[in-house]
Amino acid sequence: MADNVKPRVRVPRDATAGEEITIKTLISHPMESGQRKDGDGNVIPRSIINRFTCTFNGETVIDVTLEPAISTNPYFEFQAIVPETGTFEFTWYDDDGAVYTDSKEITVG
């Protein structure tokens, strides 16, 4: 179990219909690659976030597979077009089976 895993998300509070908004996400995570060895020469087991998804009102916005070469605290920034008021759901899947989630409401006026 990775320590101090904490998802962070930034989504604008409101937007106009059809506006392209920028979403920023970051999860603090060591992203241990499985390639490194400890002081005694034993391999440190791989422990990474292997998948990240974002949905808007249930519809997929982005679905990413993460590989071991991605560095600590993976950060994603992407654009989305919001047609209506709704909720962005963010999900990170850890190698150890843990699932971290966050969600943000956005109002389309």
């Binding site: 101090n4 904490k6 962070r8 930034r10 920023k24 970051l26 603090s28 605290n73």
Partner: peptide, 15 residues
Amino acid sequence: DFENPGMIFVDDAID
């Protein structure tokens, strides 16, 4: 602050 990687450690310190 969202872009500043140092703030992740500040969050740890709040804990």
